[in-house]
Every structure is written in structure tokens, then in C-alpha cells.
Design a binder for these strands. Structure first.
Length: 114
DNA sequence: CGGTTGACCAAGT
DNA sequence: GACTTGGCCAACC
């Protein structure tokens, strides 16, 4: 047993905003110099929608409020960014993140724990 | 209300 | 180590 269907979990529509809002809220807790992955972010939200998270970022209405550039893939690769991966890498590097090509070095070392 | 999409992930080739 | 396949979940049309 392992694939329980949590298709509902807590469908928004009552007091809960969209899944996106939660993503932004959690992401905002990430301090400078730290990063997180889509998977961990989704996990923090008690969901497995790491995809929906990324989707939310792309459609994020809170662009300047949320540090979308601090979210990377579980592999340590940059993933995507509205301004381009190159820009994302530059921002993270500027915050003290080490890079190896297009991937983060010692990802676990920079990962932020919720 | 059903089907497609996506800034993903894990395992397999 | 890089590419391919299947799966997962929420938002959007």
C-alpha cells in the first residue's frame, strides 16, 4: 500500500486559497543563500504536486514578492526561470551558491529545511 | 465536467 | 553519465 488516492486532500474553495498561494508562502520562508527543490516545497505543503508547484511559479502572480529563483530541481539543476536559466544561476551565485556548470554543488548543503 | 499542460521526479535503457 | 518512459497533481481551456 502506498499510492493512496489523495486527490482531494483539501480542495481549495472554502477558506483555502489556491495551491499556488501556499507555494509562495512557503517559498517566502526560504532565506537568502538557501535554496529548495520543487519536491521539498510540495512536501512542505503536504502534497505531491511538485509539478503543480512549478506550474504555479510560472504563472505566479506574485513575481516580485516570491524568490522563484531559489527553487531548483532535486538533481541540483536550475530547472526553469521566467527570465531564463542563465539569470537564475547568476542570482543564486550572487547569493553564495556554488555552481558546477548549470548545476548546484552540494545541493543538500544549501537546501533549506522547512 | 473532461482533457491537455507543465519552471518535475524516479527508474529504466 | 545522458536520454527515454511512465507517473503525479493542480491549474487552465
Amino acid at each position: 500500500m502506498k499510492k493512496v488516492s489523495n486527490q482531494y486532500k483539501k480542495s481549495a474553495q472554502k477558506n483555502m486559497y489556491t495551491f499556488n498561494e501556499k507555494c509562495y508562502a512557503a517559498l517566502r520562508k526560504v532565506p537568502k543563500g538557501k535554496v529548495t527543490t520543487y519536491k521539498l516545497l510540495a512536501k512542505a505543503l503536504k502534497s505531491r504536486a511538485f509539478r503543480a508547484v512549478g506550474n504555479a511559479m510560472k504563472r505566479n502572480p506574485y513575481m516580485p514578492k516570491v524568490p522563484c529563483h531559489r527553487v531548483v530541481k532535486s538533481d541540483g539543476s536550475l530547472g526553469g526561470y521566467a527570465g531564463g536559466t542563465a539569470k537564475k544561476r547568476a542570482l543564486l551565485k550572487s547569493e553564495g551558491i556554488s555552481f558546477r556548470g548549470d548545476k548546484i554543488e552540494n545541493l543538500s548543503q544549501h537546501l533549506y529545511k522547512f
